[in-house]
Design a protein around this nucleic acid. Structure first.
Lengths: 160, 160
DNA sequence: TCGTTTCTGACTATCTTTGACCAATAACAT
DNA sequence: ATGTTATTGGTCAAAGATAGTCAGAAACGA
């Protein structure tokens, strides 16, 4: 078994016992596995991405840490569909507004939350000198990122 | 737990019991925590800034002191300040996250709304090939756009 | 073999803590 | 009143403690 796989399972084991998040020290973990600290970053970058349903938070300096939070839950099918399939890598403002409107309609998000998301992907928000293709990509990323945050919130709200 | 974190909680505990301000002696506090006096300044500078909603006053010499005052503003005032003065034309992810956290703390926006905004301005959301300077500009526009949407919602909610 | 994935190490970035030196104010002596 | 000294707090740069990045080597799989 590869080192990366070992580290991946190790972290997933920590996460699977009721825990939705785990905090660790990069150097300690590297020490434990007898590898370079940067190996930990590699594992996180390749197996604990947002698309995989994880969010990584970290802090440097004394008392630094890496926190891994599992965010995807199969219950939020609509959000999961939008995030993983529907939106893709680029989306126009019109499409985005339509999808957001549907979410409000279906009461997946509140009216105000819908307004916030609309604002974030509005052409006004993206009024900087970059090609339209990049704006569409930005819109897709922004939207998916927000929807993932919502899915994560719903999940922790459901838990308590 | 870090020393800074301990000192921060200590001060916040003093502030949280009905008290809107607290006065202390830098040297005594440093003595109590067994650290260099300048450590106190570090904690104040990093965790009790105006952005965090605090004002620091102090005096040197015999009977000198440091006073920490928690500032109270209405949600609309806070939003207006952020939109018109604080954010400006560019903002880093770290700063944005801090400001959003403060809004949640002050209950100007809900936790979920905060998460949505965080997601919108996250580096993951902005992971497209443009210079950092443009990302910071985008972030500022996006954030102000969202905050404006919130202010507008609040206004119409107050009226109708 | 060739392209992809894994792994490492040097270099960089960030956060914390300390200590030497500076500045302001109060207390005191005259 | 004025000058001197004691008593505070302020600043800043350096050291220490973590984590991040990236180019290239090594291993792997087709």
């Amino acid at each position: 078994m590869r080192l990366s796989d070992s580290i991946e399972s190790f972290i997933k084991t920590l996460l699977s016992q009721e825990e939705t998040e785990v905090e660790l020290k990069r150097n300690e973990l590297a020490e434990y596995f007898g590898c370079a600290p940067s190996q930990i970053n590699y594992v996180l970058a390749t197996r604990f991405t947002l698309d995989d349903g994880y969010v990584i938070e970290s802090r440097r300096g004394g008392g630094g840490y890496i926190r891994i939070v599992r965010v995807v839950e199969s219950g939020q099918q609509r959000l999961a569909y939008l995030i993983n399939e529907r939106i893709g890598s680029a989306i126009s403002e019109e499409e985005a507004v339509r999808l957001i409107g549907q979410l409000v309609q279906q009461q997946v998000v509140s009216l105000q939350e819908g307004e916030i998301m609309r604002a974030a992907v509005s052409s006004q928000a993206l009024a900087v000198p970059v090609p339209d293709a990049i704006k569409d990509a930005l819109r897709a990323r922004s939207l998916k990122s927000m929807l993932t945050a919502i899915a994560r919130q719903n999940r922790s709200a459901a838990k308590g």
